[in-house]
Simulated scan of single mutants.
Amino acid sequence: MKVDTAQEYLKNNKALDNKKIYIYASSNKIIGGVIGTQRGLVLLSVNKDILYIHRANIDNSYGEQLAKIHIPDMKNIQGKAGLFGGKFSFNYDRKEYKFKLPAKAEKFVDFFVK
């Protein structure tokens, strides 16, 4: 699936808004969340005030929704974007979420950490 097709699919399923804030990331060990201790590729996307976490597929498509997080309720948001990748973490509903971001994740990080 092409990136444009994936973006359109996300918009049609109300997992992405016009700001196009999304990124593929690797999930680190997540403590006690819906994702459990799984590791792997995920898609993080924003629609209005909701952060969606979907399982990501190698062909730029996405699978099942792993989490739907109300952004104003996120705590301890930390993010860093750099030339060689970055990190993004937060707490939500007494669970800790940590992600490794690819290079060029500035737009995503800046949305959360300003």
Rank of each mutant, 00 (worst) to 15 (best):
D4A: 12
D4Q: 14
T5H: 03
T5K: 09
A6I: 01
Y9M: 04
K11G: 04
N12G: 00
N13P: 00
N13A: 00
L16C: 10
L16Q: 09
K19I: 07
I23N: 03
A25I: 06
K29M: 11
G33A: 10
Q38Y: 08
Q38A: 15
V42E: 01
L43D: 01
L43K: 01
L43C: 04
N47E: 13
K48M: 10
D49I: 07
Y52I: 00
H54M: 03
A56H: 03
A56F: 02
A56N: 05
S61W: 00
G63R: 09
G63V: 08
K68I: 13
I69W: 00
I69A: 04
H70Q: 04
P72R: 12
K80A: 04
K80I: 05
A81E: 09
A81R: 03
G82E: 15
L83T: 05
L83C: 05
G86P: 05
G86C: 11
S89Q: 11
N91R: 13
Y92S: 00
D93R: 14
D93V: 07
R94D: 05
P102Q: 05
P102I: 01
K104I: 00
A105D: 00
E106G: 08
F108E: 04
D110R: 11
D110S: 15
D110A: 14
F112V: 11
K114S: 12
